[in-house]
Nucleic acid binder design. Structure first.
Lengths: 243, 243
DNA sequence: TCCTAGTTACGTACAGCGTACGTAGTGCGC
DNA sequence: GCGCACTACGTACGCTGTACGTAACTAGGA
């Protein structure tokens, strides 16, 4: 009687199965998997309630029996990918362990290029997110700091990895929704950048443009970034090679 | 004759005004300002071609004379906010200058909470983005490092600030599109988190939950984060106070 | 045992979106 | 002054999320 919309719902508090009625045709895992499959194949914009329903082989509105709002579908997707994280027995070297975590996160984002766009702290309470969190905390057991600091480290690491991979993927992912190719777009933008820089208004950018020391090793850049983040929390390090 | 869709267009290469025809009723700045006004007032989802056109007082499709695709409207918005950055004569202390840049970015995101969602490296070539870039480079003149390293620093700083502010704003911004209040949603999520943690499956999270050393000073957290990023690029520092 | 209430399934419908297209009017360059 | 490129914008299409109504189904309480 009190309007159904007025009470907040978090999908994880909803029981997946209640007593009454016909048994559901799908599990949440089925639905998440279907959505992830679709997003991997067609990009995040390919994930519509209709498409996911079709992928599952049911009517569009039937999906709403499982997922009250589309955003909850997103939450299921993020949680499903979180379940792909393989956890291990931390080895005592927390920096090495956290690097491994970061590499896994990056790999997951490469497998699922739509993931960075969905990364949000509000999804941090899903079952797999909690498992992941606990695991990271276990990795940091040897790191003598308050939990608050460890959470800051984790937030910063995830933030950096997310924006890093976003940059890695941005041109490629963007091309998916454009009527022209990625290379064409890049060429036009670079040409424009060149023309602007050549105007003389941006001497340092011009210099940076000239510098251009060969091809960029993205792997090395990522590595350096991790070092820098970790260094910020434990300054003493044995020559992590700041060039 | 060669399909118009096949050739890439970057809005900045389009001349704002060509010779022929009646004079345009609006400038790009007008349009960007209208869109920004709308986004500030109603959130990014309030920015539709129809709404922006209405805000400007013209027909929906007239907008397409100025902005070929909606994404270009976004690019105009980001550029407009980039124009709000106040630039100054760098003072020689590049760390202090970069901190000031970061604080300005954060302030801009607080003024325009939709900005983090639109932050994308592909918008990095707009006129105001170039001015901003050049200014940051000028700030880093005293920092003896190759331009590549300076760009890495800038990318990392911007990434951290963006994700940091996203976190700051996430619950508030999210509430805009929900049928219930932010506080209600938080309460439900926290309650769920508590019940999960109380299950005993996540001992370290439970401990972290217990620790809870009083209210969090977001300002101090932001400050520490900046220090850590900068420390990662210049390890030697005179007691920047790690915790 | 049957009844009933809660659940699943899903077709229809609506408001809103981005934008392709066609038409009418306008003013600069030749 | 002719023509063409430009502005202006109404209409229309396909898509979206989802509210609502109806029919089938089944577990729990009497």
């Amino acid at each position: 009687m009190a309007g159904r919309a007025a009470v907040p719902e978090v999908i994880w508090t909803r029981p997946e199965r209640t007593g009454r009625g016909p048994k559901p045709a799908f599990t949440r895992a089925d639905i998440a998997a279907a959505a992830v499959r679709l997003a991997d194949a067609q990009g995040l914009d390919g994930v519509s309630m209709r498409h996911v329903a079709a992928e599952l082989g049911c009517g569009t509105m039937s999906l709403y029996n499982y997922v009250p709002r589309k955003e909850d579908l997103y939450e299921l997707m993020v949680d499903a990918v979180g379940g792909e994280h393989e956890l291990w027995e931390p080895g005592g070297d927390w920096r090495a362990d956290m690097r491994r975590v970061a590499y896994q996160t990056r790999a997951a984002m490469h497998r699922h290029p739509w993931l960075p766009r969905l990364m949000s702290p509000v999804y941090g309470f899903s079952p797999n997110a909690l498992r992941y969190l606990e695991h990271c905390m276990a990795c940091m057991d040897p790191f003598d700091a308050p939990y608050g600091t460890k959470l800051e480290l984790l937030g910063m690491l995830n933030g950096c990895v997310t924006t890093y991979v976003s940059t890695e993927l941005s041109t490629t992912e963007r091309a998916r929704s454009l009527p022209w190719s990625e290379e064409q777009e890049n060429a036009v933008r670079i040409a424009y950048l060149g023309s602007q820089v050549a105007s003389g208004a941006y001497p340092r950018l011009a210099a940076a443009f000239m510098e251009d020391a060969g091809p960029i090793d993205m792997e090395a850049v990522f590595d350096r970034m991790l070092d820098r983040v970790l260094d910020g929390f434990e300054p003493r390090s044995e020559g992590s090679g700041n060039q």
